[in-house]
Design a protein around this nucleic acid. Structure first.
Ligand SMILES: [Zn+2]
Ligand SMILES: [Zn+2]
Ligand SMILES: [Zn+2]
Ligand SMILES: [Zn+2]
Lengths: 146, 146
DNA sequence: CAGATATCGAGACAAGGTATCAAAACAGGC
DNA sequence: GCCTGTTTTGATACCTTGTCTCGATATCTG
């Protein structure tokens, strides 16, 4: 939908071009596969959808998109990793539907304020954090996916 | 230190006994190795320290301790998993020193309050969450470990 | 187009686990 | 202590999620 800009060029590709990387055929295919996926996806799903693209290339490309902040990597409660297109730019967290894999971003300023307050409670100096919220999304609650 | 109760029996073993599992020789060895480790540890470290215990058994035993809430599993920023003895019982989060691996628990009621407030911001119904704080601990800051 | 460089695909390798299955250990009744 | 049924164990194969190597290709620049 809005993953293509006016140029017909994927935002994912533009993001890595900005970092000085090339928009190659393999990367174009990976970007298209990502943009075609409705919710979050796994690296292996992309590999299966693109048998003509080497597995190493798929992983390398995902890593490029991640480092260009065009993609986010989250983990389900059991640790299984999933990737999702990153719409925003600034620091944010994710909610993940454990039923359908839908990922949404949220920027909760309250969360960050709590973290700053925690500075006094934890031993040492805070250098970073990770936070994910697991949900059953509205679509799943309404029975669209059982 | 306080990992042994009056009986000279490890709390880890007691925890799985409460769940109906046996305190076997292999499990005793794993418990001792865990209690001897200063900070957090990896499964492979235990395997190396206990060549007489099968790798599968080490992983099975860690899993038992985890499900008995006697152990916690955390992940460093790059996702590398580490295990740490769980001192408290109630719900809590962890701070992890990215330099030495020290893990501390904290129960920040503010955090939970924020999560309840987030219920209105996120799509769907919150079913769980994960939160980890990365730090450089006091010991590392003071140069005890470079 | 040619050369320099970036990228690719295949396949080996790695980390962190889990599945299988025959053998050993264990607990409880005698 | 011995018998017997159940748990647990260790060896090993396998799985998932990636990364590394390296010769072959593709891409950009001039
Ligand atoms: Zn994101
Ligand atoms: Zn859902
Ligand atoms: Zn804990
Ligand atoms: Zn430290």
């Amino acid at each position: 939908m809005d993953s293509q800009n006016g140029n017909g060029r994927s935002d994912l590709l533009l993001a890595i071009e900005d970092q000085g990387h090339r928009s190659t055929h393999a990367r174009r295919l990976v970007a298209e596969a990502i943009e075609a996926s409705a919710e979050s996806f796994t690296a292996e799903e992309i590999c299966e959808q693109l048998p003509s693209v080497g597995r190493a290339t798929v992983y390398r490309t995902l890593k490029l998109f991640l480092s260009a902040d065009a993609l986010c990597k989250v983990a389900l409660p059991d640790g299984a990793p999933r990737y999702a297109v990153d719409t925003g730019g600034r620091h944010h967290h994710h909610s993940i539907c454990t039923n359908c894999g839908a990922v949404n971003e949220f920027r909760a300023s309250t969360v960050e304020r709590v973290l700053r307050a925690l500075d006094r409670e934890v031993d040492g100096e805070i250098t970073g954090h990770r936070m994910e919220i697991f949900v059953r999304c509205d679509k799943c609650l309404s029975g669209a996916v059982q």
